[in-house]
Design a protein around this nucleic acid. Structure first.
Length: 574
RNA sequence: UGCCUCAUGGUGUAACGGUAGCACAGCAGACUCUGAAUCUGCUUGUUAAGGUUCGAAUCCUUAUGAGGCAACCA
């Protein structure tokens, strides 16, 4: 990763996770290597919120010269698939992170987990419970009142073991029996009230096949996975905070069984800490809500450019650098905040400004006729591909008597401080010449159909030899050479900053009906050469990305990635 | 009405007992062959009340507000 994307920070400005890890390193708790992990469940596509977690997990490992594993936390086969697992890998690689040979799957540890479970039974720390789920719910109690013990809680270990083996052998139906840790039914922490650690589930596993019909629960599996991988720092989101005592309980049991990894003579005791998940304005982040948008066809699939999914952002034209920069800037804390999507857009523009080639395209055209320019003649204006980067070179843009310019760049009666085309006001046609409007032609309804004017032959290239200045420069396209292209103008998916914030209204009622507008635009010929996935800047308009799905040579389709900042529209609203 | 966590400008974060800073957003201006970018300047903040201290955003107490926990999900 390049340094220029790192935000400046002082030595003392370190978020709490960084400080935590630094202290452990100093105290020699890591055995010489910090190991973290990103543990997605392969049951859906990852989104910008996951990207934050990925940047933290991989970022902390990088910062401390350690290793970050990618682990599929696949303990519930009813929801998981290889397709999801592959998409997750692809998205993480695209974001720019590398897990090296640290790829793991919880399923690879099923044997060991089972062994630990039997061990727990033998030690009288787990038992097979035959309460129905309804009974269990009743026995467990509620947060404000203690639970009561299962009638089978004190069954003899030998009996429990026999039962558990029969569970494994497939002798029981789903939900009839389960294995529970024997902890404390009166604990104020519900997760300590003899949590279920194994359930019967006659479902084949996408990765482990049909070897198992019992599967471990998250609270049991996760610390075991961390421990076996030698993970030193296990970072997750806030909702797991109340699970931490249980995580530590499992680690303690493993310690007693002598199962903790020893690295360079140091016993690695994984520790969990929690940080606030990302909330972004004008979108939703829950997997369930995103799934709903897809299933109800409110959007065009998981990779719809309006979606906050990584694949959606990618298709929209976002860059990994911009996303990483964003994740760096939002910081890490335990406060459940809502980050303004404007910051994400800032990071995007900042990155694209440096690298996107400049092109000219007119989204809402009106014809311009240069009356003193010869009919049928074509000249070429040499335009810079990126004014901030001379190395990007130049291109030749065809110019002729008839041009197309942006409708909003003309005002018959100019507003105050309007520097664009208006009768009698000289403007610059970007990279070409000066132009002055003389008169307009209108249709029966009074709409302008043609703007007539003259150019100054002495201003070819964009500057007059007498050195006079013009206040406005506009983009244009030669009518005779214009390439039509389909442009999708994307806007925020929701009309309100927090679509989930109103409990009385469904979030769908806040969908922005104008989140997608499709128009036919006209561009200079070079635009047609853009490769799918390539982002260019349509000067004065915004950044646009050739769609990876539907753009084909000869029939280009562009997605608006993000607009340019626009201080003129603000001016007009005053 | 149990347990856990959190609270700094509009937003997000920093300050770890010693001058409340940075970024985004906003506003004003300079510059400009993109009304972009760049540059300058500005507005706005420690939830409240007590306490400890020479000194509190920071430590303590209480209150208030927000979030989490009652899947055989993760």
């Amino acid at each position: 990763m390049s340094d220029e994307h790192k935000t400046v920070e002082s030595d003392t400005s370190r978020h709490f996770l960084k400080q935590w890890i630094a202290e452990d390193v100093a105290a020699g708790k890591t055995g010489g290597q910090v190991v973290t992990r990103f543990p997605p469940e392969p049951n859906g596509y990852i989104h910008i919120g996951h990207a934050k977690a990925i940047c933290i997990d991989f970022g902390m490992a990088q910062e401390f010269g350690g290793q970050c594993n990618l682990r599929m936390d696949d303990t519930n086969p009813s929801k998981e698939s290889d397709e999801y697992a592959e998409s997750i890998k692809q998205d993480i690689r695209w974001l720019g992170f590398d897990w090296g040979d640290g790829f793991y799957s919880a399923a690879n540890l099923f044997d060991k987990m089972y062994e630990i479970a039997e061990n727990l039974i033998g030690r009288g720390q787990a038992y097979v419970c035959d309460l129905t789920q309804e009974q269990w719910k009743e026995y467990r109690g509620i947060p404000t009142a203690p639970g009561k013990e299962s009638p089978t809680r004190d069954r003899a270990p030998a009996e429990n073991l026999a039962l558990f083996r029969r569970m494994k052998a497939g002798e029981f139906a789903d939900g009839t029996l389960c294995l529970r840790a024997k902890i404390d039914m009166s604990s104020p922490n519900i997760h300590f009230r003899d949590p279920v650690i194994y359930r019967i589930m006659h479902v084949p596993h996408y990765h482990a096949g049909d070897t198992w019909c019992i599967y471990p629960m998250y609270d049991f599996a996760h610390p075991i996975e961390d421990a076996y991988e030698g993970v030193t720092h296990s970072m997750c989101t806030l909702e797991f905070e109340v699970h931490r005592p249980l995580y530590d309980w499992v680690i303690d049991r493993m310690d007693e069984m002598g199962l903790l990894v020893v690295r360079n003579g140091v016993k690695i005791r994984p520790q969990q800490r929690e940080f606030a998940r990302l909330n972004l304005s004008y979108t939703v982040m829950s997997k369930r809500k995103l799934l709903q948008l897809v299933q109800e066809k409110r959007v065009d699939g998981w990779d719809d450019p309006r979606m906050p999914t990584v694949c959606g952002l990618r298709r929209r034209g976002y860059t990994p650098e911009a996303i990483r920069d964003f994740c760096e800037r939002i910081g890490v804390s335990k406060y459940e905040s809502q980050t303004d999507v404007a910051l994400l857009e800032y990071c995007l523009r900042d990155d694209l400004n440096k690298r996107a080639l400049r092109r000219m395209a007119v989204l809402d055209p009106v014809k311009v006729v240069i009356d003193n320019y010869p009919e049928g003649r074509t000249e070429y204006a040499e335009a810079q591909n990126n004014p901030d980067d001379p190395a990007a070179g130049t291109r030749q843009v065809p110019f002729g008597r008839e041009l197309l310019i942006e409708r909003e760049d003309f005002m018959e009666v100019p507003a105050k401080k309007f520097f664009r085309v208006t009768p009698g006001q000289e403007v610059r046609l970007r990279a070409a010449c000066f132009f002055t409007c003389t008169h307009v032609v209108k249709d029966a309804a009074g709409a302008v159909t043609e703007i007539h004017g003259t150019y100054d032959p002495d201003s070819k290239g964009g500057n007059a030899s007498d050195g006079r200045k013009v206040k406005g420069t506009i983009h244009w396209v030669s009518a005779a050479h214009a390439v039509p292209l389909t442009v999708r103008l994307y806007d925020r998916l929701f009309t309100v900053s927090d679509p989930m914030g109103d409990e009385t209204r469904d979030f769908l009622t806040f969908l922005n009906p104008e989140s997608l507008k499709t128009v036919t635009a006209f561009a200079e010929p070079a635009v047609a050469e853009a490769l799918p996935g390539q982002t260019v800047q349509f000067e004065r308009v915004g950044y646009f990305c050739a769609d990876t799905r539907e753009s084909v040579p000869g029939k280009p389709v562009f997605n608006r990635t993000v607009t340019l900042k626009d201080s003129w529209t603000k001016e007009t609203k005053k």
